[in-house]
């Protein structure tokens, strides 16, 4: 099938999409946007988090066809050219990035949190990021990054 989808503000088209394919596969393998990650492909890790019509979803759980005529924003669409989004900047500065495989999903999840709750408390940050696994950091510096980004908004 053919899928028409707006990705990071651009109208895109994917052909020969198989019905069972996920939005994640389409983004990564057909649209050249491998930023969203594939750590579990079963909705458990959050590494594939993207905005679908402004709501964060696990792209591995959304069928590619479901994104037809809708709008997707991925981690690749957060920075403004060379200028990182404050959340991205804070992740680098706070040392929240080690291997970085969790980072794209966490950056999108934190971005969404700060859009909804500009000055979240620690329990609110933890609750918002509870669906995003990180194996490297123990999360302390990820919390630091979100606090830092919040303080700069």
């Amino acid at each position: 099938m053919r899928v028409n989808v707006t990705v990071n503000g651009e109208q895109r088209q994917a052909d020969d999409v198989w019905e069972g394919e996920s939005l994640l596969f389409m983004l990564r393998e057909r649209l050249g946007l491998p930023g969203s990650k594939n750590a579990c492909e079963q909705g458990e890790c959050g590494s594939c988090t993207v905005y679908l019509d402004d709501v964060p979803v696990c792209a591995c759980l959304v069928a590619a066809g479901q994104a037809h005529d809708r709008s997707v924003r991925t981690v690749e669409g957060l920075a403004d050219g060379d200028r990182l989004d404050p959340v991205q900047e804070a992740f680098v500065e706070a040392g929240a990035v080690q291997c970085g495989f969790c980072t794209p999903g966490l950056v999108v999840a934190a971005h969404d949190l700060l859009n909804r709750v500009p000055s979240p408390s620690d329990p609110e940050i933890r609750e918002a990021l509870a669906g995003n696994l990180c194996r490297c950091t123990g999360y302390e510096k990820i919390l630091d990054a979100v606090r830092l980004a919040a303080s700069r908004r």
Binding site: P34, G35, Q88, G100, T103, P104
Partner: peptide
């Protein structure tokens, strides 16, 4: 770090 937060680091 920059590439990783932008989703542009090639794993």
């Amino acid at each position: 770090g920059n590439l990783k937060v932008r989703g542009e680091f090639a794993y």
